[in-house]
Design a protein around this nucleic acid. Structure first.
Lengths: 346, 346
DNA sequence: TATCAACACTATATCGTTTTCGTAAAATAT
DNA sequence: ATATTTTACGAAAACGATATAGTGTTGATA
């Protein structure tokens, strides 16, 4: 049984295509009897209008494109979940593209979707894009009248709506919590500065120390190069973190800018014989699946990814459906929340 | 700058739409000079054909729909990653729909995509669908000539290509490993039987014991009801598992059918003072992010989700591009692999 | 009886492409 | 010089749906 179309119904019922279309829309132009007949037939054979044809006609697809750097990733999936929920509620479909942290894949993926397949983008840029600082694909997309909402990893130079996590504030909150619990020497495990979120969280760390009038030393900062984040180099990651913790033996607090780093810190501290939370307290950023299962369980800064995704989707859809509300772009901040577990107990 | 179309180029260059179209395809029908002119113009203004129009014309979208029960889930995301990689390589785009384990959302999501938006489905059914045993949406989709590839949670009654994890075999492998390491009393934490994968893994557990001639007791089986899997009822989950382990105090091996259960087992055993792996050895199914960070790290049965996704995508695209290779449907099994970590060390 | 409105439809254009078919003009053959 | 074949392009249909603008038939009104 092949797909039913208006044309087939028209032929079958010996009326015109227009009549069928109008009957299904219950138009007053069509006589009661005819309408009944058509509607009954359509229902019987389960007619559904072809989305592609509608998209072409209406010049809008009711679909939004989401580009994320990585999908096997707790934070990004919670964001996608949030996006999907409001998209669905508002009658939109979600296409997912993965950049795998590659600039080129990000560009080709966007190129492919920008040609009529979607009404707008929600995206978090790849690390490579952040490094290269090449944003032509973003500005060109916007120039063509396609709205973009950026989230988490945003680009200052691009004017569009943004939804971000309160990175600096969240980090500050975490470090202040450590101070309040009596930590005097607080280390940070972070990324190089070209990774936006790493930079911002590091800034929050410094700010917290500053505001409390604490001396801050570069020696307490460990910046981990990117290549080490791949699955394969777990050992390498561990080595670097362990030797840092061995060297900085008087640390009594550690703030890690992601959950993996924090979990490794926990493990390394145990291996070198320093007790958590008694001797050292640890806080990680991102509340993922790991935190509640480490030993001890990990205090984290939760990012509310789902809420972030919902906000992003609402912003984009508003923009799409209301093209008049042009330029005044907004940046929204999703508050973080400190979730306390065993790793910071006194 | 609005989107460029063939019509606009034609008007601008004062030729017909056909000429533009053919020029861009480098057709021999068109004179060299005209072709150059059109191609140069198109390149300059970055013309890209409209996907929607192409889809309508060609009656195929080069898009595949993926429906998963849950996206904040390590296994499903690895599968999606695998699907996306081959889809992209073969020129396809991926639309993701979430059922959130709900039958209704699964149906409406499929309905929405089946109307022209995609060329075929890759899906893993929701738990509710498994429970209700209502598969009309699946059979109707197939009847309409749209290919489906099911993965992981498949339905026997539906004839289509399938890619499954070697659940029974994997579970058997795990339990035999426990036996080999000297375990005599092995418990299993599983799901009710209506969850396919739970049932199959339980079957593997029984099979392993049988084949080794070991007495098997219902007392060693804990079946956990579904509602407890929600984030909120983590406490409930923990309670049930802990009290089971307290009651069955002579267990010296535990096999859990997912990573969360296994991680909870680890924690509960520690809380009730039983040492892992010395007194009790533990193995979980699914190699996620948790396993290497628990204490002790967890031995797991890895499912190779990415490989599974790749196979599913290849199967579907083959089917889509080759509609003649009709009915002889196939079921492919992705081998599992036991990844040994601390929780089973001797 | 001529005029006009109401009714119940149908024809047609449109969205952006591709493709088949048709056709002037130029080039070649006879 | 006439017939025939290329060359180089344009017209039009098609994909499926919607919306605007007709159109033929009634029935009512002046």
């Amino acid at each position: 049984m092949q797909k039913l179309t208006l044309k087939k119904i028209a032929r079958e019922l010996d009326v015109s295509i227009s009549t069928v279309s109008k009957s299904l829309k219950d138009s007053p132009e069509i006589g009661e009897e005819t309408k009944q007949k058509v509607q009954a037939f359509a229902k019987l054979y389960n007619y559904r209008p072809n989305n592609i044809a509608l998209s072409l006609k209406n010049q809008k697809t009711k679909t939004i494109g989401v580009i994320v750097p990585e999908i096997v990733h707790h934070f990004f999936t919670t964001v996608i979940k949030g996006i999907e929920s409001v998209a669905n509620a508002r009658g939109y479909t979600v296409i997912v593209g993965l950049s795998n942290e590659s600039f080129e894949k990000e560009v080709t993926n966007m190129d492919k979707l920008a040609n009529g397949s979607i009404d707008g983008f929600i995206l978090s840029v790849s690390k490579e894009t952040q490094l290269k600082k090449d944003y032509h694909h973003l500005s060109e997309t916007i120039d063509q009248g396609m709205p973009i909402v950026m989230f988490d990893r945003t680009i200052n130079e691009i004017a569009c709506d943004k939804v971000i996590v309160d990175d600096t504030e969240g980090a500050k909150k975490a470090v202040k919590a450590l101070l309040q619990k009596g930590c005097k020497q607080i280390g940070i495990i972070t990324t190089p500065d070209h990774v936006n979120v790493g930079r911002l969280r590091t800034a929050g760390y410094k700010l917290a120390l500053e505001e409390e009038g604490i001396h801050f030393s570069e020696d307490n900062i460990l910046r981990i190069e990117d290549e080490l984040n791949e699955e394969a180099s777990f050992q390498g990651l561990y080595q670097i973190i362990e030797s840092f913790l061995k060297k900085q033996k008087d640390l009594d607090g550690v703030f890690a800018v992601n959950e993996t780093y924090a979990a490794i810190v926990l493990r390394a501290l145990r291996n070198i014989g320093r007790e958590v939370p008694k001797e050292v307290k640890v806080i990680g950023f991102t509340d993922g699946v790991l935190s509640r299962f480490t030993t001890p369980s990990l205090t984290t800064v939760s990012q509310h990814g789902e809420q972030l995704g919902q906000k992003a989707a609402d912003l984009l859809i508003d923009r799409v459906e209301n093209e008049l509300l042009d330029p005044p772009y907004d940046t929204f901040t999703i508050e973080t929340e400190l979730i306390e577990r065993e790793s910071t107990e006194n």
